[in-house]
Amino acid sequence: AVFAKWLAQKDKNIYFAVHAGYLPSNGEALTEVLAHPDMVHNAKYQKLYTCMQQVYSKGSFLHLPHYPNAGETQRSLEYGSKNILRQAHRQYLAEVQAGAEPQAVLDRLVEESYQKLLTYK
């Protein structure tokens, strides 16, 4: 309990989160990190916070409905979306390795993946 209380303090929470690649659990810390993702030195973590900044500013959060199979629905959605994105990643690597122009391949695969995600059941 002492450690959790210490870790939940804004400054400690920011330090831990930006060094470990986690989202801060303290609301003020999260707001600060999302407002200033450049405070993060690790490029991968900086991308995470930049992405989350966009999600928080432009996205909508939906909760699963409360029904008996809600967990299975969530697992299916996660599995399906990961497979769609994994397939697009593999296709991107293969096409670029074969000589295709990277940005054109990326643009096409992003749109194709987006359409697949929209229609996934």
Rank of each mutant, 00 (worst) to 15 (best):
L48C: 04
P65H: 10
G99V: 06
A1F: 11
A94I: 00
Q91D: 14
K10F: 00
P102N: 10
H41G: 09
K12F: 15
N69S: 13
A104W: 07
R90G: 15
R90C: 08
E112W: 03
S25D: 11
Q115S: 09
H89I: 09
Q54S: 10
P68Y: 09
Q103P: 03
K10T: 05
R86C: 03
F61D: 00
Q9W: 07
L117K: 06
T119D: 14
Y79P: 04
D11S: 09
A29I: 00
Y67T: 08
T119P: 01
L118K: 15
H41I: 11
Q87H: 11
A8T: 04
K47Y: 02
F16H: 05
Q54A: 11
H89S: 13
E28P: 03
V18K: 15
Y67N: 08
A43K: 01
L7T: 02
M39V: 04
C51G: 13
N26G: 01
L118W: 06
T119A: 15
L109N: 03
E101P: 07
E111I: 09
G27C: 06
K44R: 11
R75C: 12
K116D: 04
Y114W: 14
V2C: 02
R86N: 13
Y67S: 07
M39E: 04
L118T: 06
Q97V: 05
G21A: 02
H36D: 08
H66P: 05
V105D: 11
H19Q: 09
M39D: 00
A4Q: 05
D107M: 11
S60I: 01
S60C: 01
P24M: 01
L64G: 10
I14Y: 03
H63V: 08
Y15Q: 15
D11M: 03
Y79H: 15
A88Q: 07
A70N: 12
D107R: 15
L30V: 07
D11R: 12
D11C: 04
S81Y: 10
L64I: 10
V18I: 15
L109I: 01
N13A: 04
V110T: 10
E95R: 11
L106S: 12
E32R: 02
P65K: 11
A35V: 02
M52A: 10
P102I: 10
A4F: 03
G71T: 09
L77E: 13
A20M: 08
E78A: 14
E95D: 09
Y114E: 15
L109R: 00
K44T: 13
R86G: 05
